[in-house]
Each structure stands twice: as C-alpha cells, then as structure tokens.
C-alpha cells in the first residue's frame, strides 16, 4: 500500500524536478540581473554628470528609431520585394542574392563611422590611413562577384544533379 502510494508521487517529482531546477535558475538569473542593473545605475550616477544623462537617453532613442523604423523595415521590405518579385527564381538563388546584399550592408554600417570620422574628427598621422570610400567600393564589388559566383555554382550543381537523376 505504501509502495503503491509512493510510486505516483516519485514519478511526479522526477518529472517536475527539471522544471524546478529551471525555475531556480530563472529566479537566480533575474535577481542577478536586477542587482547588476542597480550597480550600473550606481556607476552611472558616480561617474557621469547628470547633465549628460539627456545625451545618453537621446542616443538610446535614436538607436531604437534607426533600427526599428529604418534598418529593419528596409531589410524587411527588401526581403519582400526580392522574394515575391522573384517568383520564377529558385529560392536558394534568392537567398544567396539576399545574403550578398546583407553582407554589403554590414560592411557599409561598419565603414560609415570611419568615413564620417575622416571628415569630422581631429585627424593626425597614422589615424584612419586608408581611403575608406574606395575600400567600401572594393568590398561591395568583391561581395557582388562572390554572390554571382555562388549563384552560378548553385545553378551548375543543381543542373548536374538533375541531369544525373535523368
């Protein structure tokens, strides 16, 4: 009787234990996170003048707007256009083309601050030694060439495979 009664309970506990462990980790992580956030507030209060906080908030808002209202919709819109316009083009080819465009865009994002810095920052010897506009062009051309090569490679491979299948 005792053995029968204990069986479901042990089964229940063994089933519940991973969840309990996860719950403990969740609580621990959230408490740790809140503590670190409080520490970050203390660091900010003790090292940055309050008159500068508004500048930080402005940059936060600008970052959200630039990403959520500019970058993401553009990427999203480009995805819609490429995918839906390219109805007669294989999906893999569309994915490769999209990939090439995104890689070029990431290079652009990384290089734009340097291009602006060359114009607006106080430059001195050995700082920003390259022509970054030209190098961005080289990277775009390289990306487009590799993208085209990948598309051609994919089409050749699929054609050979189809031919083998008969």
């Amino acid at each position: 009787m005792t053995a029968t009664a204990s069986r479901p309970s042990s089964r229940r506990s063994s089933k519940r234990s991973p969840t309990t462990a996860i719950q403990r980790w969740r609580i621990g992580l959230i408490v740790l996170g809140v503590a670190i956030l409080l520490l970050s507030g203390y660091i900010l209060l003790t090292t940055v003048k309050p008159t500068r906080y508004i500048g930080i908030v402005e940059w936060f808002i600008a970052a959200i707007i630039i990403h959520d209202a500019l970058i993401a919709p553009i990427v999203f819109g480009a995805g819609v256009i490429v995918r839906r316009m390219g109805r007669r083009i294989p999906l893999a080819v569309l994915a490769i083309v999209q990939g090439g465009l995104v890689i070029g865009a990431v290079f652009t994002i990384v290089l734009v601050p340097e291009i602006l810095a060359q114009r607006y920052a106080h430059l001195f010897e050995t700082l920003l030694p390259f022509d970054y506009v030209k190098n961005l062009g080289i990277l775009w051309v390289g990306t487009l060439v590799l993208t085209a090569a990948a598309v051609v490679g994919y089409l050749l491979v699929t054609r050979v495979r189809r031919a083998r299948r008969g």
Binding site: S40, I43, L44, T47, V48, R52, Y53, I54, G55, I56, E58, W59, P113, E114, L116, A117, Y120, A121, H122, L127, L128
Partner: peptide, 18 residues
Amino acid sequence: ADWYPFPFPFRQTHFALS
C-alpha cells in the same frame, strides 16, 4: 577611430552601459 562625437563622456558611459 579616435572620434568622440558624443554628448556624454565615452569611457565612463561605455563602462556603465556594459
């Protein structure tokens, strides 16, 4: 790029935001 176009001090803000 040794450029500081921020309306806040770089090092302290970078440290706090981390």
